[in-house]
Amino acid sequence: MGKYIVRRLFLLVPVAIVVYTLTFVFIRVAPGDIVDLMLDQGGGGGTRVAAEKLRAQLHLDKPIYQQYFIYSWGLLRGDLGVSFRDGKPVSSELARRAPITLELTMMALVLALLISIPAGVVSAVKQDTPADYVSRVGAVFFLSMPSFWLALLILIFPAIWWGYSPPVVYKSLLEDPVTNLRQLLPPAFVLGSAYAGILARFTRSSLLEVLRQDYIRTARAKGLTERAVIYVHAMKNGLIPVVTMAGLQSATLLSGAVIVESIFNVPGLGNLTMGSIFQRDYAQLQANVLFFAVVVVMINLLVDLSYAWLDPRVRYS
């Protein structure tokens, strides 16, 4: 098991190199840079000399391959660079914003699991009944709804009906738990809804397959209650593909965080990523994309490792 984990962690290296090389080339090829943007925002008041000085400071005056080596050398020493916008280390901004996105995505994940697993189980156990149809149509409906539209509806209608809107200034969970929950629950619900749709569909199909197995028939034949058959025997095997899907779709949650955080004004990584794209803050954008990729790969590794716990037949070497 230990050897397997080390080997998988080594495989992270080529993925990280390809991700940051791709991102590096993409954003450097984009026309214009942050210096142009700063001069534009300053009404063109900046001098040519000042602009050249700033470019030299940020290494933007060098050819792309040299910039790449400078960045790679920094990365090898654990230095992600400084933000082009405010000169602060991007790692500190990443460390400040990542917990907010992590809290939001964890809340979304918990909400999605709380909705999807019972819905999927009911749908499978009561196959081809009205409960099954409602659950299936609900799942595919949430899956088809764009998250930004659901977010707008959640902001508009409570405001029209009850004059309610979520708090605007962010408070951390430790600082003010009630305000924090009032701020993060609506975006977490939006983020979790499409995810819940995917997971409910998977729970249903996976459980239906397990319920047709011989060992389930044996469990029923020896007189176990239906509850015991489903919760003790069927669920553990039926949930293995659901765990895989939950891991593989984790990128969906992070993707959704970009748009949902922008709409609900949550100061997380998604919001920071949007800001870095618009402000051409290459260093910050690159660090964020790399962080997203590493998180997704680590989640996939955790998913693979969880198989051994869920299914004793799975052994890693």
Binding site: V19, V258, A293
Partner: peptide
């Protein structure tokens, strides 16, 4: 692997 590791919308925004 590398393209799949980056969230879909983030990759689309970068491109």
């Amino acid at each position: 692997d590398a393209i799949l590791a980056v969230p879909l919308l983030v990759m689309a925004l970068v491109v």
